[in-house]
Design a protein around this nucleic acid. Structure first.
Lengths: 267, 267
DNA sequence: ACACGGGTATTTGTCGGAGTAATTCTTTGG
DNA sequence: CCAAAGAATTACTCCGACAAATACCCGTGT
């Protein structure tokens, strides 16, 4: 695909500029590039993964635009747009003459779904997973409490339907997992807080990634449906404390499952 | 002219108003553009504010790249890079033939510092502020609890120094506010959770914006230093529950202050 | 010897135009 | 009436040149 660039004008290969190992271009071509994903997205994924995984340390500065875009066999425009994405997520910052530098980790937007995706390419850092579960443990019970206080009849109906679908399909099927997502989404709507909704979307994306990881390790999670039911009952009863406690149990369960999987797959 | 505004499909276009040729370009030039802020940043700020403030509703599609960039008197590259920033923050999505559409609010990354900035240009939405404080009420006590359990001697020293500086300068001075930030930063370091750190950075940015707003209304916040001291004491004593409670009180206080200010300045 | 100020080189930033690719809408054939 | 082929529209990518900003070097003056 990138070959089109080199061949389009039929320019002859210049010996003065040794092509160098286009290991980079290969790696770039290997990056998954689905329907909506454009070239700039692939570049962003490549650079973002390299940064989040630590291959490019904070403070380091990456190669200049012209050189780097040529190394990746992409145009400078596409490369620059990819860098803008990284900049928007706080991973890098660019200044004339100084170049584009990787920012300290404290500046990264770790809750951005894409950044989370990059963090989970390869082996996830156990400390990072622990941090994520600590956040879940803080936020999700609070969401459940708010939901218990504010839920409408429609919210309850949606949660009940999702719960029934979960029971029917189980979490082993895609339909079951969809129902699970719908349950949490309904809970979130019931909580009536847009900011928490946005945060939960990020967390949910992280949950999906860990779940994927769990499945990769072929671990069978124990049945979480009773816990979901407890959350539902407490929310329906308007019992904030009960809902928070039930949700806390749910998060703890997921944490324990994940930790087990990560322990049984050492290097 | 009106090119940059939302353009719903099927609606007949009014003929151009006879006003100044580039009203948009003027507005763009008026957008604050500090040292590091580039042209693309100004465009992103302009479009982002218009979207977050609701001037361009979700589902609406913005004018094509060529027309819109010309209307703003910027090159297509700069405009596209600005749109990439918005895309990275979940505000818009682009597809060939369909154009660039504003995404539903649930897709926005409301915790992104820039998005928060855009949300606070003009009158902040009271509901949004409430949501933010609910998040703070959930997360910050948890941070204090973790800090109480994990703080090192260095953490305590840093917090103590910041507290002293706060006492000396008070929050009316810039030095005092810097000390305040340092206190919270030290607390965060003590908690030892990178994800919470990233989240707190976003929240802190929102806090700064609300504080700015409070100052704009010339309201004098009551003295929060005793509450900070209580947090410090509990953290030093390793009292997780106490630290959480003290921090809860601090957040409540800030919420009350902000609400007062917002009540006394109705639209 | 050192502080300071100006010039210079390097790097990102902006520009404009041309051609490509993907997707929706339309049209046509079954 | 439906489905597949085609047309139109839009974003996407590429290219090459120029402008702006700033870190760095060097000469100057004290």
């Amino acid at each position: 695909m990138q070959a089109a660039q080199a061949c389009r004008k039929g320019e002859p290969m210049d010996k003065a500029k040794p092509e160098g190992p286009d290991q980079l271009a290969e790696a770039l071509a290997r990056t998954p590039r689905g329907s909506g994903r454009r070239l700039r997205g692939a570049v962003a994924h490549y650079l973002g993964s390299a940064i989040v995984s630590g291959q490019i340390a904070p403070g380091a500065k990456l190669t200049g635009e012209i050189a780097n875009s040529e190394a990746l066999n992409v145009s400078r425009s596409a490369y620059r747009e990819a860098v803008q994405v990284l900049t928007a997520k706080g991973l890098v910052a660019s200044k004339p003459k100084d170049g584009t530098r990787v920012m300290p980790r404290s500046n990264w937007n770790l809750l951005d779904p894409l950044v989370l995706t990059w963090a989970f390419t390869g082996e996830p850092d156990p400390g990072f997973v622990r941090d994520l579960f600590e956040l879940r443990a803080l936020v999700e019970p609070g969401i459940a409490r708010l939901a218990a206080e504010r839920r409408s009849k429609e919210d309850l109906a949606a949660m009940k339907a999702a719960l029934a679908a979960m029971r029917q399909h189980t979490l082993a099927t895609e339909a079951g997992r969809t129902a699970d997502r719908e349950f949490h989404e309904a809970l979130l709507r019931a909580a009536g807080n847009e900011v928490l909704m946005s945060l939960a979307a990020s967390i949910g994306s992280a949950v999906n990634l860990t779940t994927q990881y769990k499945q990769r390790a072929r671990a069978l999670p124990r049945d979480p449906i009773p816990d979901h039911a407890r959350v539902y009952d407490a929310v329906a009863a308007g019992d904030g404390d009960g809902a928070a406690a039930a949700m806390q149990a749910l998060v703890d369960l997921a944490h324990r499952d994940t930790r087990e999987v990560m322990d049984q797959t050492p290097g």
